[in-house]
Amino acid sequence: MNRSGADVPDRLALLPSAVASKYLTNAVRSGHERLPQVAILRAAGSIEDGSARWSTGPLKEILDEAMSRFADARTEADAWLAPRLHATLRMTRAEAARPELWNFLALAVAPDYVLWRHLATGEAKDGTAKKVNTPRFAGPQDSQAFARLWWAAEMFRDGPDYRPVEVACGNQDMLNTVLRLDTIDHKPTALAMVRVLEGMVRSGATRLGDRVNALCTAVNSAGSTLLYDVLAPDELPDQEALFAWIDDAEGAPPVPWDRLPDGPEDGTARRASVDRLTLMFQELADGAPLRDRSRKRAADSA
C-alpha cells in the first residue's frame, strides 16, 4: 500500500461513474494493484471555475494528517476529518451533489486514504483477500468515503459551528444510519438527534449502538405522521453568507488541526425548535425498545 506521491493531480476534476466503476477491479479494491492514473486523468472532465478551493494540496495535507493521527483507530478519523474536509472543500450543496467530484477524489487524488480507512484487516473467511466495497470509491453519498463525511458535516453543522458534526461522526452507528434518513434534511431534527446522542454518551449508556439505532428508527417512524418542520420551524440559510465563505477559500489559511475550523455564517437553527425536538426525541428514545439482536440473527439465517 504505497502512498501515491508526486503524480497526484493539482486540481480536482470530474470523473464519470461509468468510468470509475470499470477501473475498480478486485485487485484495486484489495490494494494489490494501482489504479491507472493516466487513463483516469484522461477520462476526467475539468472544472471550469479556477478557484483555489479545487486545489488538491490542502486536501492531501489533511488526509495525510488524519492517517498519521489515527493510525491505530481508523474509525475515529471520521470525526476529525469531516469538519476539516467540509471547511477545506468549500462548495454549495449543488456542487457537492456531483458524484463525479467524489469519484475523482477517491480514484485520482486519494485512493490510499480510501484503502486505509475502509480495508478490513486480516483475511476473509473463504481465504480470499479482503477488499473495499466499490461504493466507498464510487457510490451513493452516504457510502462514498469522502462524500459521506462532507455531507455529514453539511447536515449536522449548526451554521459555522461544527461541534455537532464531531459528535455525530464520533458514532459510527449514527453516521451510517442517520445519514440515509430524509428526516435529517430538517436541521433542527438533525441537531436534536445529536443532542440526544450526546446525552447518551455523557451518561455512559450501555449498548450505545442499539440505542442510536432505536432512536433513529423512532424518529423515522414518528416522522411518518409528524411534520417536524411545523413543530419546529426553521429558516432558509443565508445564501449570501455561504457564497462569501466559499469565496474566502481563495485567501483562507489551511484548516487548524487541533481545534475546530469555522463553517459558513449562514445562520444557526432556532434554539427553541431544537429544544422542543430534543425533548420529544429524548422521550421517544427512553421509550423505544432496543433491538433484540439474537432475533435479528435468527431472521437473517432463516
Binding site: 428508527t217 411518518s224 405522521t225
Partner: peptide, 10 residues
Amino acid sequence: KFDVRSGSRP
C-alpha cells in the same frame, strides 16, 4: 410494519 419517513421500515 410501522411506516417511516424514508428508508427501512421497522
